[in-house]
């Protein structure tokens, strides 16, 4: 049985200018100890998916229209607040993109670091502080005994992200959701943080959902990848298959627009047009308007995710018919 099983999740935002279907029927599962990458551009619904699971969607304007997210037998979307509080922050933890804004600037690192422990475990403050020190050392912060009493502004960006990771992992969660944890960091620091996440995952045996828009980051870290576009999953496969035999035109286009894979001096491949307006109904494939292989049928026929090989599914009707 998978650790987390999400079925038909639909989250929309009701605003004055219409209903935006940010997540539109997303289903996926995460096994124990595996790393799942969720890739997509801004507005593809990758963050909203995870925020919905964690109950972090502000309601209103957000509304979870349907779906279930079963974590170890408990439906996170429909359980009692007390039940979800017992899971969130303890068994499922999250780290965010911007370590500058996700730490409380008014609190010393020590206070925020041990807060999850004080809430979720019967532990004395002194013992929690010892655990906090160990956690800081585990994420590679030198001189942790002195630094634990500093304020977040006294840390650099990479250090703050380490503190965030230490805080998320202090309760030894079974699932870590990382929402673009390296996007705001330099490449050299990104390399450090990715190594750290891998190391902590090995030590704790936890599952990781890694949200990113960078296919390069995914390739080294994730076992499985799902690509999202306009609130839907368009392709999901294990990392090697996705990189070597992508089927969906959007996955291919995304891969082709990475500068590193293209010859210098030639014009870079670009995806024409803009992502669709999520407040308008889309009966067919959401990517049809930008797709170079779109046929008239693509705009009207619903594009359901269909399995083509064990673990490999995509939502392109033309690729499934063998036309691409």
């Amino acid at each position: 049985m998978p650790l987390l099983n999400v079925t038909d999740l639909r989250t929309s935002f009701h605003t004055r200018s219409g209903v935006y279907r940010a997540v539109d029927g997303v289903s996926f599962a995460v096994e124990r100890g595996e790393t799942l990458g969720i890739v997509g551009e801004s507005g593809s619904g990758k963050s909203v998916t995870c925020y919905s699971i964690m109950g972090l969607i502000p309601q209103p304007p957000g509304r979870i229209e349907s779906g279930t997210a079963i974590f170890d037998g408990v439906d996170l979307l429909h359980c009692k607040p007390a039940e979800s509080r017992a899971i969130r922050g303890k068994r499922v933890a999250m780290i965010f993109q911007d370590p500058m804004t996700s730490l409380n600037p008014y609190l010393r690192v020590s206070e925020q670091l041990i807060e999850p422990l004080l809430i979720h475990e019967k532990i004395s403050k002194a013992a929690a502080r010892r655990r906090g020190l160990e956690a800081l050392e585990a994420v590679g912060i030198n001189d942790a005994a002195r630094r634990i009493d500093l304020y977040p502004h006294e840390f650099s960006g990479g250090m703050r992200q380490r503190v965030m990771i230490a805080m998320a992992l202090i309760t030894k969660p079974e699932l870590l959701i990382a929402d673009e944890p390296t996007t705001a960091l330099d490449v050299t620091v990104q390399a450090q943080i990715l190594e750290l996440i891998k190391k902590m995952q090995r030590e704790l045996g936890m599952a990781v959902i890694f949200i990113t828009h960078d296919l390069g980051v995914v390739s080294g870290l994730c076992d499985r990848v799902q690509v999202m576009y306009a609130g839907r999953i368009v392709e999901t496969a294990d990392t090697r298959t996705l990189f070597h035999h992508p089927k969906h035109p959007y996955t291919r286009a995304l891969q082709r627009s990475i500068p590193a894979l293209q010859a210098k001096g030639t014009e870079l491949y670009t995806i024409k047009g803009l992502p669709p307006d999520l407040s308008k109904p889309m009966p067919g494939c959401a990517f049809a308007a930008r797709c170079e292989f779109a046929a008239p049928g693509c705009i009207t026929t619903p594009a359901e995710l269909g399995t083509i090989a064990p673990g490999h599914a995509h939502a392109c009707i033309r690729a499934r018919l063998g036309e691409l």
């Binding site: 390399a191 995914v218 390739s219 990189f243 894979l261």
Partner: peptide
């Protein structure tokens, strides 16, 4: 060397 390459 820190640039992640998009090839698993």
């Amino acid at each position: 060397s820190a640039i992640p390459t998009p090839d698993p």
